[in-house]
Nucleic acid binder design. Sequence first.
DNA 1: TAATAAATTCACGAAATTTTCACGGGATTT
DNA 2: AAATCCCGTGAAAATTTCGTGAATTTATTA
Lengths: 221, 221
Amino acid sequence: MKVLIVDDEEMIRDVLREYIEFEGGETDEAQDGMEAVKKCRENRYDVILMDIMMPKLDGFSAVKEIRKFSDTPVIMLSARSEEYDKLFGFEIGSDDYVTKPFSPKEVMARIHAVIKRAGGEKKPRDIYEFEGLKIDMVGRNVTVDGERAELTPKEYELLFYFVENAGVALTRERLLNQVWGYDFYGDDRTVDTHVKMLRGNLKEYRKFIVTLRGLGYKFEV
Amino acid sequence: MKVLIVDDEEMIRDVLREYIEFEGGETDEAQDGMEAVKKCRENRYDVILMDIMMPKLDGFSAVKEIRKFSDTPVIMLSARSEEYDKLFGFEIGSDDYVTKPFSPKEVMARIHAVIKRAGGEKKPRDIYEFEGLKIDMVGRNVTVDGERAELTPKEYELLFYFVENAGVALTRERLLNQVWGYDFYGDDRTVDTHVKMLRGNLKEYRKFIVTLRGLGYKFEV
DNA sequence: TAATAAATTCACGAAATTTTCACGGGATTT
DNA sequence: AAATCCCGTGAAAATTTCGTGAATTTATTA
């Protein structure tokens, strides 16, 4: 069981962590919404405990952002107990809420309930396997002949996009738009450098990324 | 992908159109809610981008009206970022919202998310087959009797253009303009050389590229 | 804030591709 | 049948493209 604790107050985080780890759970922490979103992009959690009022990015917005790419259950931690907050929390995609001050016992109960609820309909992970190359998009890990490949964020994104579009000829322009974003106005050849790095990390399976001269690249099994 | 852009500001429409079309999407526009409803009755869209504040009929009312006869996903574009608007937008039947000023990247991401949510339709690839000659434009594959043909970039472009215009007599000039681009000021006979190379690679299926003496070439099955 | 990691730019050189061009043979016209 | 025109071809020259390594900038972490 892996839980992400998102709260700007260190004391709150400490208490929650202690209880969860006491029960044998694993924890990770974020101090604000921004960090939470980032951590969710990089890791897979079973539950997220999310405070509402935080610097940089509030809990509501963070959940909204996370919902774009993940269905991880969220339990909101609210200092305000007004109905409005509760309702809004639900609409925005959270699965439960607890109002401060809360008892650790209560929080643990909610965690178990949420995990149980979500457990019934676990989606199969997107795990691709091409010969000795395993790619787990949700878990965000890539193994080459059983050995874990340490990729940088961009390398993951690039590889995932390649895999999602296996067999399709991709121009550098399209890769830049889709992997880097529409607001990237840099050099074409940046793609090449990242492909080089990615190929290096894929070892023998570099062969799957074929160069299309005059066009770009293609992932092909 | 067909998107209806509804906004009274031309500049906003222009920016959105540009981004969507850049990605290969098709767009249609409406200046107010009334026009939007009318267009929706007459056409089928994959997504509607709807501004809230507009003359004649505001975004909320327009969505309400459209919901009477269509389930097309709607993304609201709101100038006001108050919670109220957001909530109201949801209740009224929109699928997502973006507050101005928005980044094109964000809007495109929402569009993709909404379309995916609404059940992504996979398009079958355009694979042409002429006897033993298979041509997959998307994957950039050409096989001759099952054997893969290794073409150069120009050869691909030339072949693809031939296939897209099968049965049409093409002058060298037209080929130069369409395949090489209008800014090519080289020799006419360059085409000949490439046709020669292409024919060589198509082996027995060279027969599909027929010479039109005094004119140019034609791809004919 | 310093230290570290990641992303980006860029120029070199090898390799692939494109272009030019002239020769020769077959088709077309006179 | 001769002259002319047009296309197929091969080969050399010119150009483009890509992989790479290193330098630089930017972001992240401690």
